[in-house]
């Protein structure tokens, strides 16, 4: 379970403080799939970073009794001057996993082959994104954070990503953040709407989509 209790987050800006949200609460249970709908700039990514623990809330408390992934397929979490293999080793060391058995999987899944031993900055954008996704699959988590959905690679690769994530790991909790309603509709049972610094109660997904559609029209 992840429990968020009355958190707020504000950033110091040139003009003073920018408060992204106030008094936000949410509970995610094991295996539950929750969508967060919000327009651009509503604070979705900030919420993901707080859930993942890379940033701390200004006030309030977040407790986790399940392991939570880093934001999925995030290519910026890797180092360009290092090779794909180095990045894999780094991730494995940080999360305490033996790297050797995973090398083949990552090279094959990301379709990198010999490029595993080349620096990441020599990769195409597609290769980079595929590596990032493959690395995210190396460590098993109880809960996956998905920020906008994996629009990575060609149709075939996307199909494989979906299998890995929603098929093989279908029993895990997931938090899917998106401004595209159909993605949330496809994978989540419930969804909450982030708007003007407030997060609604999680609603059944159909209801949430209606509410979101209304908001978007205004």
């Amino acid at each position: 379970m992840i429990r968020i209790e009355h958190i707020s987050k504000r950033y110091r800006m040139r003009f003073g403080f920018h408060e992204v949200f106030q008094d936000l609460s949410l509970t995610i249970h094991r295996g539950e799939k929750i969508g967060i709908l919000g327009r651009n700039g509503s604070g979705k990514s900030t919420l993901i970073r707080l859930l993942g623990g890379s940033e701390l809330p200004t006030t309030g408390k977040i407790t986790r009794s399940m392991s939570v992934s880093w934001p999925l397929a995030l290519s910026s979490a890797f180092q360009g001057s290092l090779t794909g293999l180095d990045n894999l080793h780094f991730i494995c060391r940080v999360y305490g996993r033996e790297p050797a058995p995973t090398v083949g999987y990552v090279a094959e899944f990301a379709g990198l082959g010999r490029f595993m031993r080349e620096p990441v900055h020599s990769y195409s954008a597609g290769m980079r994104a595929r590596l990032a996704f493959a690395l995210s699959m190396v460590i098993e988590f109880d809960c996956y954070l998905i920020d906008e959905v994996i629009a990575v690679g060609d149709a075939q690769f996307q199909q494989r990503c979906r299998e890995e994530l929603f098929g093989r790991r279908g029993d895990r909790a997931m938090i899917i953040v998106s401004h595209m309603p159909h993605i949330v509709a496809e994978h989540c049972e419930r969804a909450a709407i982030l708007e003007a610094g407030q997060l609604s109660e999680p609603l059944p997904v159909a209801e949430a989509l209606d509410r979101y559609a209304e908001l978007s029209q205004v």
């Binding site: 623990g53 407790t63 986790r64 009794s65 399940m66 392991s67 939570v68 060391r93 940080v94 999360y95 305490g96 996993r97 460590i139 098993e140 988590f141 109880d142």
Partner: peptide, 21 residues
Amino acid sequence: SISTDIRVTSFAESLTIQRRV
């Protein structure tokens, strides 16, 4: 499954994680 939970980690476990990192 590899636990990367922080809520249940003791001081010794935290130390192991930190050393690893």
